[in-house]
């Protein structure tokens, strides 16, 4: 081993250690609010408030107990809300994958009139924040037809308020998802389609058997990105869901803001509803992180 390579190695090692130090310092910045949340969820209100200005806020010391968690379960039907959120999220994401990827396929690989216009309109809708159309939306969904089973008979009725589907259907189609699929699909060689066409495959088959299986990373990316807003739905269910049995988790936050806020319970509840997301993310993180990378999202 020569002196030169030894020096180079040394430099590289120092560089590596430097990287770890920097990355760890940054990691602390990204983690501390969450640590604060988990730790506070174990403390009584008064102690949370008195610890807040000191490093004690991050250390489970003092009067530590699960009291807040019991309080949460007394106040809020946690299980029910979790179930609702899981249901709404899974359906929104699942149906969204299908609908948006089909649209992306049509927009990226098929020639039809109006395609360019449609794509521009879809992209333009990205600029609409939901808050600005929430009010017209409430009027609108309250007029939509629906099927109800009443006394064993299937009937027509109007008004989508107070249901699961009102929390799902408006959010299935997603401009951003369509855009991502369109981008990703257009990177898959078109020669594959032609070959399959010659073999007599229908477009639908090409989509399902050739293009979709090659687009795993795009599906994974869209799944995670649509999972988050669906889980965190707040303003919308607050306006359109009346029965407690149908409420999602974020609305449950409001249960703790009474005349005086039970901060310990707020922290316990936020911990409880953040945990599933973290678990989902942690278990898929490898696939997700590499799939975003592989999907090579581009402008």
């Amino acid at each position: 081993m020569t002196a030169a390579t030894l020096g180079e190695r040394d430099v590289r090692r120092r560089h590596k250690i430097g990287s770890y130090v920097v990355m760890s310092a940054i990691a602390v910045i990204f983690l501390f609010p969450l640590v604060f949340m988990f730790v506070s969820s174990l403390k009584p209100d008064a102690q949370i408030l008195s610890d807040v200005g000191s490093p004690r806020a991050f250390i489970p010391v003092g009067d530590i107990s699960l009291e807040n968690y019991f309080g949460v379960f007394d106040r809020v039907p946690v299980g029910r809300f979790l179930f609702n959120s899981i249901l709404v999220t899974v359906l929104t994401v699942g149906l969204g994958l299908i609908v948006n990827s089909m649209a992306g396929f049509a927009l990226s690989r098929l020639r039809w009139r109006g395609r360019v216009l449609v794509l521009s309109v879809v992209i333009a809708t990205l600029i609409v924040p939901f808050e600005t159309i929430a009010v017209p939306m409430v009027y609108w969904v309250s007029k939509l037809p629906t099927l109800v089973v009443e006394g064993g008979v299937l009937k027509y009725d109007f008004g989508w308020l107070n249901s699961y589907h009102v929390q799902i259907v408006p959010f299935i189609a997603n401009a951003f998802s369509i855009f991502l699929f369109t981008q990703y699909f257009s990177t898959i060689p078109k020669s594959l389609d032609e070959a399959a066409r010659i073999d007599g495959a229908s477009w639908f088959t090409i989509y399902r058997r050739i293009v979709a299986p090659l687009a795993g990373p795009a599906f994974a990316t869209v799944a995670i990105l649509t999972f988050l807003p669906a889980w965190n739905q707040y303003l919308w269910p607050l306006m359109v869901v009346q029965q407690e049995e149908l409420r999602p988790v974020m609305v449950g936050m409001q249960y703790f803001f009474q005349l005086n806020t039970a901060w310990g319970e707020v922290m316990a509840y936020t911990s409880l509803i953040t945990l599933p997301v973290l678990l989902v993310f942690l278990s898929f993180q490898r696939a997700f992180v590499s799939s975003v990378a592989a999907s090579g999202v581009k402008g």
Binding site: V99, N100, M102, A103, F105, A106, L107, L110, R111, W112, R113, R115, V118, V122, T125, V128, I133, M137, V169, P170, F171, I172, A173, A175, I178, S202, W203, F204, Y207
Partner: peptide
Amino acid sequence: RRTGLTMAAPALVLLLLFL
């Protein structure tokens, strides 16, 4: 052409209705 429109339709209809 027909397939293109059909496959895009569900998403487009939903976007039209809810956005």
